[in-house]
């Protein structure tokens, strides 16, 4: 993979990869889900992957509609079970590139157990987990990722439960590739998604996506500009975080302490399910 990204134009990209009759997307003004789709397609283009060898799998929710916009084979499955379907596809045909679009409610809430065991099994999947802090499509109920004090339709006086850190969970289960990005900057996520697809083994890319309709409006972030700015103000690059924690002043350290860390959080090698399975078949065959 080249280090210098030279993306195709948006017009070329949509002619190649997008189902024209499905466009424009159903997403609200200021939603970052369209950006996640763009970045994924740019990453696929960067890797020059044959679209006939790619399968998109998704569950239920706003984020899970993304698979329907791509002009390749895909599955829109039951709520939270996208990873199980994807594991089945990968186990049946290990040559396919399987990309899963899932949301925080779908992947970490309802399908939380599937997430745990798919990471543990180390299936060769690329999971793009879109975190918007809320169940957006069903009317803004609180999700496992809703920050403490966050107002949703089921927590009208503020959430009292601690939020789940999906990346920390994946790192604890030793997923080979874990990254978290905001949609504000285009190039780092494009490069990261491309790395995730190229990685042998489970790759989790958590995308922090603004939801101005279900989350922003209730939490004092009304309007596209304010909620997008919130993500700029409340995230810190992992490299900057480590640098400031080591060399920064006390005030600087206090300022970034509670911010969300973005960047490539884990990048290691681990034998994936297909390789283990192929070895087993080799060992026990008559």
């Amino acid at each position: 993979m080249s280090t210098l990204l030279k993306p195709k134009t948006a017009a070329e990209l949509r002619d190649l990869y997008v189902r024209q009759e499905m466009m424009p997307t159903i997403f609200c003004d200021g939603c970052g889900l369209g950006n996640v789709l763009n970045y994924t397609l740019w990453a696929l283009d960067e890797l020059q992957v044959d679209l006939n060898q790619v399968v998109f799998v998704s569950g239920i929710g706003c984020s899970s509609r993304l698979s329907g916009y791509v002009n390749s084979d895909g599955m829109h499955t039951t709520h939270g079970r996208a990873l199980s379907f994807a594991s089945g596809i990968k186990a049946a045909n290990p040559n396919l590139t399987v990309i899963v679009f899932t949301g925080d409610g779908d992947g970490a809430g309802i399908g939380g157990n599937h997430l745990l065991h798919t990471i543990r099994r180390n299936m060769d999947l690329t999971v793009i987990l879109v975190n918007n802090f809320i169940y957006g499509m069903t009317g803004g109920q609180s999700a496992p990722t809703t920050p403490i004090g966050g107002i949703s339709s089921t927590t009208p006086y503020g959430n009292v439960e601690y939020a789940m850190d999906i990346c920390a969970l994946a790192m604890a289960l030793e997923a080979p590739y874990v990254a978290r990005w905001t949609v504000n900057q285009p190039y780092p996520p494009i490069k990261s998604i491309a790395q995730g697809i190229a990685k042998r083994g489970f790759a989790l890319i958590e995308m922090l996506v603004p939801c101005p309709t279900a989350y922003g409006g209730r939490n004092g972030l009304k309007g596209v500009e304010r909620i997008w700015q919130w993500y700029r103000d409340n995230t810190v690059l992992l490299d900057d975080f480590e640098h400031i924690m080591e060399f920064g002043t006390h005030e600087e350290q206090e300022e970034i302490k509670h911010k969300i860390k973005v960047g490539v959080l884990q990048d290691s090698e681990r034998e994936c399910f297909d390789e283990q399975w192929a070895k087993l078949v080799e060992r026990v065959k008559l």
Binding site: T9, A11, P24, C31
Partner: peptide, 16 residues
């Protein structure tokens, strides 16, 4: 710089 093109969620902008 093509930032608008890359950030457009609906593939609607092309800079040439």
């Amino acid at each position: 710089c093509r930032l608008c093109e890359l950030l457009c969620p609906d593939f609607a902008i092309t800079v040439s």
